[in-house]
Amino acid sequence: MRRVQGGKRGQMALLEVSNLRTWFHTREGVVRAVDGVSFALEAGEMLGVVGESGSGKSVTFYSLLGLVPVPPGRIESGRALFEGCDLLQISSQGMRNVRGRRIAMVFQDPMTALNPYMTVAAQVAEPLTVHEGLSHAEARVRVLEALRAVGIQDAERRMDLYPHAFSGGMRQRVMIAMALTTNPALLVADEPTTALDVTVQSQILDLIAGLQRNRGMAVVLITHDLGVVARACDRVAVMYAGRIVESARTEALFDRPRHPYTEALMDSLPSTAPAGAPLRAIPGMPPDLLGERSGCPFAPRCTHAVDRCRTAECALVETEPGHATACIRAQAGEW
């Protein structure tokens, strides 16, 4: 086993991904959705993965869980060691033993992620009957526990209702209950609060953070919202154009971003702008991921870019312990 960047000395990471590339082969050409992503995740840690739409943050984790449609998707390279086995190599039978049991997932939209034809109890029980072979009655007991643990009032009566009888926030709680019934080591939450109201967002984040602490479960929180990251995550990886451009502990990242994209993203938020002043918008648009690229993908929009940014190989390198950036100028101490 290799030791991991950012990991504690001598301790093996729960999940270690190296050089993951997931490309989509479309009629227009090859879309490099994930293009060389490496990171490690410790047990019990909450990692925020931030990026805009199309940055590859969801596809990265869909790839690990075998959820990328093939074709057009194809995993071109990479390794993903989780509890000693490579998720990208295991059989589909092996994946079924991991997915939903050791690694659970919560999706963005609780309105479509639940089956409208199944009662909540039946859906939450499914992972238990499938993965643990519990009987109907045994599963019901565990379902009730799980629903209570995520704060569903009057769970005994409401578990036999269908999803439409639940509000958005309650459905997200049901999704989380379903993900947690099998005591996974890792929960991947893909924009779990984006579709919810502000006050409900806050409740759901507190719930996830509480479960992470109490169960020692690792969480990957995929989000576009830097506020969510600031609130809940221990560590952050910032993605742009299919790559991680910066990773650091949360405080370090917000105190002193070491990639121009991270800095520009923070500066463009209305909450950081002085009252009355225009926002510092990032010029241009996120890049087209079609075809081969060279140099730093952010260079065309970057105010610090110099000529060699457009040609150099931009690898993620630690500039301080635990703080890595893909900006070659930051690496050279020029910025």
Partner: peptide, 26 residues
């Protein structure tokens, strides 16, 4: 008061220490 206190800002230290008013239910 509760609504404004629930809004998250991109400032980890502030986010982790400031008081929040939990609103029960929906």
């Amino acid at each position: 008061h509760a609504l404004l206190s629930a809004a998250m800002t991109p400032d980890p230290r502030r986010e982790r220490t400031r008081p929040r008013i939990p609103l029960p239910g929906e």
